[in-house]
Design a protein around this nucleic acid. Sequence first.
DNA 1: AAACGCTGGTAAATCGATGCAGTGAGGCTA
DNA 2: TAGCCTCACTGCATCGATTTACCAGCGTTT
Lengths: 354, 354
Amino acid sequence: MNGVTIHQVAEAAGVSASTVSNVLNGRTDRMQPATLARVEQAIEQLSYRPNRAARMLRTGRIQVIGLIVPSVANPFWGALARELEAVALAEGYHVLLCNSERDPARELKYGEELLADGVSGVVLCSSLPSLDHVTPLLKRGLKMVAFDRAAQAGDPPSLASISVDNAMGAELATRHLLDLGHRRLAFVSGSVNSVNRRERLRGFRSALEEAGIDPAQGVVWPGAATSEFGDKESAELGRSAARELLSAPEPPTGFVAINDMCAIGVCRGARDAGLSAGREVSVVGFDDILLAELFEPPLTTVRQPLPEMAAETFQQLRAHIESTSGAGRSLLIRPRLVVRESTAAAPVGGLGAR
Amino acid sequence: MNGVTIHQVAEAAGVSASTVSNVLNGRTDRMQPATLARVEQAIEQLSYRPNRAARMLRTGRIQVIGLIVPSVANPFWGALARELEAVALAEGYHVLLCNSERDPARELKYGEELLADGVSGVVLCSSLPSLDHVTPLLKRGLKMVAFDRAAQAGDPPSLASISVDNAMGAELATRHLLDLGHRRLAFVSGSVNSVNRRERLRGFRSALEEAGIDPAQGVVWPGAATSEFGDKESAELGRSAARELLSAPEPPTGFVAINDMCAIGVCRGARDAGLSAGREVSVVGFDDILLAELFEPPLTTVRQPLPEMAAETFQQLRAHIESTSGAGRSLLIRPRLVVRESTAAAPVGGLGAR
DNA sequence: AAACGCTGGTAAATCGATGCAGTGAGGCTA
DNA sequence: TAGCCTCACTGCATCGATTTACCAGCGTTT
């Protein structure tokens, strides 16, 4: 342990502990400059650091936020964790890491622990359709912001939500394929009932409609009835989707994948079928994970601007922490299409012409 | 805040706070079963959770460990973070996440903060050749274990180190290529002076020697003089290494890459040169990140058994926390070669025959 | 000169859990 | 029955920072 207490500082500066406390907490406005200087010098000399436990015991709060993600082994969540930690650190907060594995029970358990730990707030990354399981925590005073999940009707009012505009992202992706001349499009989703999936599917359909194509023409690959959410599963799903869709009559030439891992799987499935992404078929991903740029071919994808989103998330959470007022403000961040090499002009006459 | 204190529990159970404290801390041996039951029931009914701040103020310790990684956005560190968090959680510890960006100054600053926070211990993931910058922390009583860095002569004696046997891993990789008939081998390293790189290079050379090949025959690509360590940089470096090496006279046919991202870059560089990994050239990676299996071609690589390593790391750290004795035990974990499709028999006559 | 307000501080109570020293009841020995 | 133990708990000081209550000193007002 460090061992230097506020009293030792007070003694060294020739003042009382209260005065040192006032300095530490910025209540220096009505203070003699000389006293202030003495205290600051004493703090410096003893290299005093306030004991967080004692501080928290009084204030009931600690400069720590909890981050609950499905799994930080997933590159998207890893990248978020890094960004959020950087923002938090700059504001004097530390980040406690929790991997929920997308299990509501674990999300709840983590929430309870974090509450008991006295964390200032929690960023919950959960795309479960309902967040009812955490309302007891909110009632008990836990400050929370939901990330990567747009606000839903019926959500607890005190819960702010930060998310990319999933519908817009899918629209951007779909429109890009349409602009390249693709007319047979497929929407490949690697996960079951999440809010994001529904939104992206909605964007896909509305882009088709806007282009005068019957949305029913868009092929939707619903995914197997798997409960697995991992990267490997996403990629495998994309692969089998591509293989199956491409061996059907009138196969699609453009693919909108639910995320980048799924898009990678689609590219591999296309190769299995003797076609290649960026030539005969076009594939658009979602997220723009680091790998998207490194893959062969480099993926055209919808970028979630993580640094900006992380900063917004933290600001929302802090606003929530500092104010006692209830309602949280929700934000939809505008995504951006990053065009790389997995998309190209549609082959003349479609794949039937090969 | 929760609001339920130990005194309320005590009152509800009709005992003193001390007795509740005894129950909480497992000192139940001399206790009447009936009393124990009453206390436990009261805890249950009030859904009481001990206030960690108060507990820490008394004991000076908190059930939290710090994890300092270069960047959790890197899939390897993300995977470790997840494994370690799982192990820690099972033992009742939480994990505080820190991204050092491989900056010794940041490592030190995080260490100081963690010490002030009263964390039980820290896992430091740093492959810097010297850990001198953290010795002041160790002196001040911080319990620390180094991960992914074999113990070095001159390391502080109280520092345990957990690492894969890097030399053995590189030997496995190299021997595999030799067994496939490759005779012109290159060692491609994407990073500068780290302990791991040196060890892996040593393994590469000793495998050559063992096969009766002059180690000087092995081409070592030293990497550009970059200070960047990111994934993107690793991959880019692999790519330019492959392009350059393959356009030289008598190009190598087998590549040992410093890690999987670098191996992926080498594969792309080979393609740039009109060759493909798993056919004309063979590439072995290191780490076995998730992506290794998903890449095209799936990478042959040296696996670091992360779950096992994470478990060992945590056990070492806890031993260190619980005992006051100084010396830490260091461990070298045996890696395993995972053969996939990026390696194949050497082309007859080498690449000159094409 | 008494009453009042303001300044620049101090002393002491407080937060909740911990763990040692202590206590009373009951049992056992001599 | 006095003396001594053991059992099974309780009382209380303690950790370090915060914060409330308070006070002395000084100038101003009435």
